[in-house]
């Protein structure tokens, strides 16, 4: 027994070193799994508050760009107004739909909530975005996030009371189901960690006719995003002769570098299909 204590006393520094290393490496490999530790919640609150201060200054330098994108978003919305459409045939009449979408909560599927971006990165293999809106304001993990121009930005992975951390599309573990707007072929959008100007769309059928400049949109199969949201534009095709599918290089539509406001998508009808699927799986 005495020898054990002696051993510990002699090598205490080394044991302490191993202990600290062990703690760090445990944190590193447990962070992405689902049981989140207490420290990430507290740390998010603190770094969020500091990031918000910093963003207060940085925001001024991007006001012009933010303004431009808001005007563009407005333009899109104005073009959807009913009075902009006039039909010469008087038999057809555009009528106001009498169904009130908000009073019948069953009809509404997606609810959009705005949030301010307080910190953002684009140049790492795994990029995260921090939002100033958290659990107290109705954000839960696994909600989809889009930019002001309706382009997909990422998915919420972690929330604290007032802040949320979003896994950007520029993350090596991000997977998004997408389809080509023209042909309808589906694929998986992923990121290789190298440059933030390129995303990869994998598993696209070789029957697809793809041209550079084609639009890629969300497929609507995932419960995070409605179908038809912008993802990016086709750059070119990597034709791997040995594989039976194409990999397409896609330029992301979201402007990740100057993100200031985003919308978080809350899927109100998420529960029922999920339960159904679980029931089938358990059978």
């Amino acid at each position: 027994m005495r020898n054990i204590f002696l051993f510990i006393r002699i090598y205490f520094t080394f044991i302490f070193f191993l202990l600290l290393m062990g703690v760090s490496i445990y944190m590193l490999f447990s962070y992405n799994s689902y049981h989140h530790a207490v420290y990430s919640k507290t740390a998010n609150e603190i770094t969020g508050a500091i990031n918000k201060k910093y963003n207060g200054i940085e925001y001024y330098f991007q006001l012009k760009r933010t303004n431009d994108s808001l005007v563009k978003a407005n333009e899109v919305l104005y073009n959807r107004l009913r009075q902009d459409f006039e039909i010469p045939d008087t038999l057809n009449k555009t009528a106001i739909d009498t169904m009130a979408l908000d009073s019948t909560s069953i009809a509404r599927k997606y609810l959009y909530m705005q949030a301010k971006v307080v910190s953002n990165s684009v140049n790492r293999p795994n990029n995260y975005i921090m939002l100033h809106r958290g659990a107290l304001q109705g954000i839960k993990p696994d909600m989809g996030v889009i930019g002001i121009n309706n382009a997909v930005v990422g998915t919420v992975v972690d929330v604290s009371d007032n802040y949320a951390v979003v896994m950007s599309l520029l993350h090596e573990q991000s997977n998004l189901s997408a389809r080509l707007k023209k042909g309808g072929e589906t694929g998986i959008i992923s990121f290789d960690g190298k440059t933030h100007e390129i995303l990869y769309m994998k598993d696209v059928s070789k029957f697809a006719k793809i041209h550079s400049g084609d639009t890629v949109v969300t497929s609507g199969f995932s419960d995070k995003f409605p179908g038809g949201l912008l993802v990016g534009y086709v750059k070119d095709i990597i034709n791997d002769k040995s594989s039976s599918t194409y990999t397409v290089r896609v330029i992301p539509a979201a402007n990740f570098e100057s993100l200031q406001y985003v919308f978080i998508i809350n899927n109100l009808q998420k529960k029922e299909p999920e339960e159904l699927l679980n029931k089938v799986k358990n059978k």
Partner: peptide
């Protein structure tokens, strides 16, 4: 790490050089 959301990565490297 807590600013970068990479809990443990920088901590481990720093502990190593401090040792």
């Amino acid at each position: 790490d807590s600013f970068n959301n990479t809990y443990g990565m920088h901590a481990a490297s720093c502990v190593l050089i401090a040792y």
